[in-house]
Simulated assay, not measured.
Amino acid sequence: MNLRALVSVTGKPGLFKLIGQNKGGFILETLDSAKIKSIVNLNTTKMATLEDITIYGEEEEIRLLDVFEKIKANGGNTPNTKASGEELRSFFREVAPGHDEARVYSSDIKKIISWYNIIKEFPLFEEEAPAPLQ
């Protein structure tokens, strides 16, 4: 799974594709059909690639990519983000066993489900991640 170019931006819904950089910050493009481009100033906005995001675990942090892989391996079926908190938690126990239930909220689970549903159709989801540089 090669999701290196996909980012989450604090305060903005959805996911973005990192397409470039200029003096003012990073140039991002929405993943929806509108393909709106915007510039994000890193001095005032926080941004994280999906590959860098982790989820609180009881013993160690769980990589978001591992959760996405588990969802994909289970057929890619996710509950509706409007489902009850218990239904969401039950689903998350299957795809992220060992997550810290006290620190991972229903809102976090909804966000992860919505992100998965956004990216599952993209070719980046099927590509292997490039090997790290040594």
Score class of each variant (00 low, 15 high):
Leu64Gln: 01
Tyr105Gln: 12
Val67Trp: 00
Glu61Phe: 07
Phe125Arg: 10
Ile19His: 00
Thr44Pro: 01
Lys23Ile: 10
Ile27His: 05
Ile55Glu: 04
Leu6His: 02
Pro123Cys: 07
Glu29Leu: 07
Ile19Thr: 10
Gln134Val: 14
Lys72Trp: 04
Ala48Val: 02
Ile55Asp: 01
Ser114Lys: 14
Ile112Thr: 03
Leu124Val: 03
Leu31Gln: 05
Lys46Gly: 10
Gly24Phe: 08
Glu101Phe: 01
Arg93Ile: 12
His99Asp: 00
Ala129Pro: 01
Val9Ser: 02
Asp66Ala: 12
Thr45Ile: 05
Lys35Asp: 06
Lys72Thr: 07
Lys120Ile: 07
Ser114Met: 08
Arg93Met: 11
Asn2Pro: 04
Lys110Phe: 04
Phe122Ala: 05
Asn80Met: 08
Arg93Asn: 13
Asn2His: 08
Thr44His: 13
Ile53Val: 12
Leu42Ile: 15
Met47Arg: 00
Arg103Phe: 02
Asn41Tyr: 04
Ser114Val: 03
Glu128Ser: 15
Pro13Val: 08
Glu59Asn: 09
Leu31Ile: 04
Phe68Pro: 06
Pro132Ala: 12
Ser8Pro: 01
Pro123Glu: 14
Val104Pro: 00
Ile36Trp: 05
Val95Phe: 03
Leu18Trp: 01
Gly20Glu: 01
Asn77Pro: 02
Tyr56His: 15
Thr49Trp: 07
Lys23Pro: 07
Leu65Ala: 09
Trp115Asp: 06
Leu3Val: 13
Ala131Phe: 11
Asp108Lys: 11
Ile39Ser: 05
Asn41His: 09
Pro123Trp: 13
Lys120Leu: 09
Gly24Ala: 13
Glu59Tyr: 10
Glu60Thr: 13
Arg63Val: 06
Ile55His: 04
Asn74Asp: 13
Ala129Arg: 13
Leu50Pro: 03
Glu127Leu: 09
Gly57Ala: 08
Glu69His: 10
